[in-house]
């Protein structure tokens, strides 16, 4: 089992993701530079990390989306491979059309860096089998442009297909207007694509994957992936 962390100019959470895979869940992992035209190894899961690729010029993720390696990322995702986009990675995945909708400026204009509570809405994805539906997890966010928007039809489809994976909530799991600090449509913090093999989320699970960093709620995204790849989760290989 092998992971890859895709590195764009301006990525700044690549080392954290690499660390979690290698040192916390103890799996093989490579960095893959965005200028590569092809993968040099076979991967089971690709991670697009957070950061400010290309300085967020034009729109967040809009330039990174045309990096040479993105052709391979899209091919991999379309073939059913697992792709996890965190923060800027989520923005890149929407720009690339691998996930519906877009991420725009937070409603209060501020860059928000704090712990948030998320309610797990779907525990049947390759990324969330180690959580339970309705569970409240604490994961930090750090973004200025993380308000998820989509049109009404898309929202309807997301709901019908159970594609909303995480919602911003209170510590008790109530999805309220006041817990929706960035103004996301329907408190959306993370979604999967229709097939369920691509997850995009604004909060940073890689920043809370060890008790020494405050909590390890984020680790279970990674352990869920491992379980799914090993065939121990519903729908796994």
């Amino acid at each position: 089992m092998k992971f890859a962390v895709i590195v764009f100019p301006g990525s700044n959470c690549d080392a954290d993701c690499y660390h979690v895979v290698k040192e916390v869940i103890k799996k093989d992992v490579d960095y893959v530079w965005h200028q590569e035209k092809d993968f040099q190894a076979e991967y089971d899961c690709l991670i697009l990390p957070g950061g400010f690729s290309y300085g967020d010029y034009l729109r967040t993720g809009s330039i990174a989306r045309f990096s040479p390696i993105m052709n391979k990322v899209i091919e991999f995702a379309e073939a059913g491979g697992l792709v996890l986009g965190i923060c800027n990675g989520f923005q890149i995945l929407t720009e690339a059309g691998l996930l519906p909708g877009a991420l725009v400026r937070n409603k209060e204009l501020k860059f928000v860096c704090k712990d948030t509570f998320l309610r797990v809405e779907n525990d049947q994805t390759p990324f969330t089998s180690d959580y339970t539906k309705g569970q409240v997890i604490k994961i930090p966010v750090a973004h200025g442009e993380g308000a998820y928007v989509c049109d009404e039809n898309t929202l309807k489809k997301l709901k019908e297909n159970n594609q909303i994976v995480f919602r911003y909530s209170t510590s008790l799991g109530e999805v309220t207007a006041s817990s929706n600090f960035n103004g996301s449509t329907d408190n959306i913090a993370g979604i999967v694509n229709e097939k369920g093999n691509v997850l995009g989320m604004m909060p940073h699970p890689e920043r809370c994957a060890e008790a020494v960093l405050g909590n390890d709620f984020g680790k279970y995204i990674f352990t869920s992936i491992v379980k799914w790849l090993e065939g121990g989760a519903p729908g796994g290989k």
Partner: peptide
Amino acid sequence: TLKPSILDPQGNA
């Protein structure tokens, strides 16, 4: 320009 349906916090500021 942002579509009319998209909130523009920057414009509000």
